[in-house]
Design a protein around this nucleic acid. Structure first.
Lengths: 341, 341
DNA sequence: CTGAAAGCGCTTACAG
DNA sequence: CTGAAAGCGCTTACAG
């Protein structure tokens, strides 16, 4: 009430100049004489005037904001992977003068509810199969970079991704190498491309050695079923140990692995002697501090995020470019797996 | 080039209705007949039309975006406290239909560079003493909620904060209780109100027991000096152990504590036998997985964030309200401190 | 239920 | 170096 915010008009009037002049003083896009500049700045200060970012964005069709589209479940927090990725994105954006719009709102299906967001481009996490959002961003004319690969493959979309097939293959190779055959794979949700790629790679490692893949049991994370990632790991062990036979478990993320380790502790299962545990993502701070230290795959989440941001920034300046970068993940052997005796 | 994005005008023209009608179909703010609605929607789909959020925001003076103002250092990642806080803010915002604008851009001092951001309100982390931004937001007419208290005290600004004085007091009381007198305090940066409050509380605990405070040595974190929080902890120990005498160290955050633990390991100092370590913030996942498990203060960062968001959301609807909430922190005793023999 | 027009607060050719 | 005016893409009283 009453107390209203000063606009460019107020300043122009009080300083006795045109709006264009005030605009130029602030944007510095055209030279304004020293005297006028000073008068305008003084009046602006008096009035408590600050340029309105939204109005400016509308006029120049640019917001200097990058969007980060990221699902979030109500009850679980960000995973180590997500946090590191955001860190990478954030630093890169900050360095280039971009802010970050974190968009964690749930998807809707009402066509009336979509809108062209106040962003110059977006980074989207975990695209799903046939993800309709990819086409939508194209229509909106908003540059898009995926973290994770599009499915089906699409030559026209930018993305950065781990080589998830290779990752699954390496893990399989490693576990087979130390004698494990009976493996419980706590995989990601089944509609995610990573889940497919990793299992595909794992199966590949068995095939390469002529070992039947049947001894691998795969579970999939489900938002409906599991309270959060750690619970997924915990419950899966609690419910299957003793019933199903396995000597090693592959956990989708470090969080899942924490749940697995907790369950093992409660059931008095010695890790890694009686059970080997390996995680498919690696929060450096966490993995090094568990007991035993967690053997895991380093997905370089921060690098992935930074790469995505770099590509996006490039693309926001030249929308015609397309980059697709696949980053190799590497196995970090710590203490949670042992040779099957 | 060439390929341009459809606007409300295009749709109106092609559907043979007015812009107002198209607007109403999408906003549902006034009833439109079924037939017209269908025609408009169809044309919109054909044209790949989506309402422009920026234009809409300008017209209705509302963005449905909350800002999160958070400093970030180039080389260090978010602390556990920040991550948890963001989690709290994010969930609360998401629940209420708000997006989050992460603003980590460094502060500048050119008055020409400030602008009214595309947000309906902002949450600001770690206000500094005499923080000029507080007044600025007031002038901009943007609702503000601080995480941390304003200094000097100000009855008109909203904030949530831990009771940092009490926190310092409790920690002091605890350490004194188990026989420690010679304490190294790796405090936050000296220009932060939390640093002052905590040391103040710590000194209070000594005073309460009539013990001279002189045996406490306080260091302050400095962006210029320290590469990141963990390094701060690590270096501080490496450089002082053996030279200064202390039997316990208070680490500002869990990250700092990780650095301290690492230094202790390298120097072969047995924690907690020869050195007690306590952290003033608590990343549950991390603290429970260190060896020994880290005794720390639970600042309920997520609750703090959620509270801040709740207050902000209230304030965005009624800018006259003022809430100040102080949340008590509690000591979580794990394994990293021991009685001085 | 729908339209015409003014307005949100900026920017930017164009003209001088 | 500066001004007048059109334009960015929406919304919303007002009128019918």
């Amino acid at each position: 009430m009453g107390q209203t915010v000063a606009t460019i008009d107020d300043v122009a009037k009080k300083a006795g100049v045109s709006k264009g002049t005030v605009s130029s003083v602030f944007s510095k896009k055209r030279p304004i004489s020293r005297q006028v500049t000073e008068r305008v700045l003084e009046v602006a200060k008096d009035l408590g005037y600050f340029p309105n970012h939204v109005a400016r964005s509308l006029a120049i069709k640019k917001t200097m904001i990058a969007g980060l589209k990221m699902p979030i479940s109500k009850d679980s927090n960000m995973s180590g992977f997500e946090i590191q990725m955001i860190n990478g994105v954030m630093k890169e954006c900050s360095k280039n003068g971009y802010r970050l719009l974190l968009d964690t709102l749930p998807e809707h299906d009402d066509p009336t509810q979509f809108s062209i967001d106040p962003v110059d481009g977006v980074i989207m996490l975990n695209p799903r199969k046939q993800d309709p959002r990819i086409e939508r961003y194209k229509q909106m004319g908003i540059p898009l970079v995926l973290v994770g690969r599009p499915d089906p493959e699409d030559e026209t979309v930018c993305y950065v991704d781990n080589n998830n097939r290779d990752l699954g293959f390496k893990v399989g190779e490693y576990l087979l190498g130390i004698g494990h055959r009976d493996i419980l794979f706590l995989n990601a949700a089944s509609d995610m491309t990573v889940a497919y790629d990793r299992e595909n790679g794992l199966a590949g490692s068995f095939a390469a050695q002529g070992i039947p893949y049947g001894s691998v049991q795969v579970l999939n994370y489900s938002r409906k079923m599991h309270y959060n990632a750690a619970e997924y790991g915990y419950r899966s062990i609690m419910e299957t140990f003793g019933k199903k036979h396995y000597t090693a478990v592959i956990a989708d993320t470090d969080r899942v692995a924490l749940g697995v380790l907790r369950a093992a502790r409660e059931l008095n299962i010695d890790v890694p002697v009686r059970l080997s545990v390996i995680a498919l993502s690696n929060d450096a701070t966490v993995a090094q501090e568990t007991t035993p230290k967690l053997t895991s795959v380093d997905q370089s989440a921060e690098i992935l995020g930074a790469e995505a941001a770099k590509i996006l920034i490039e693309k926001m300046n030249d929308s015609s470019i397309v980059h697709q970068r696949v980053i190799d993940a590497k196995l970090v052997i710590r203490e949670s797996c042992s040779h099957l005796s």
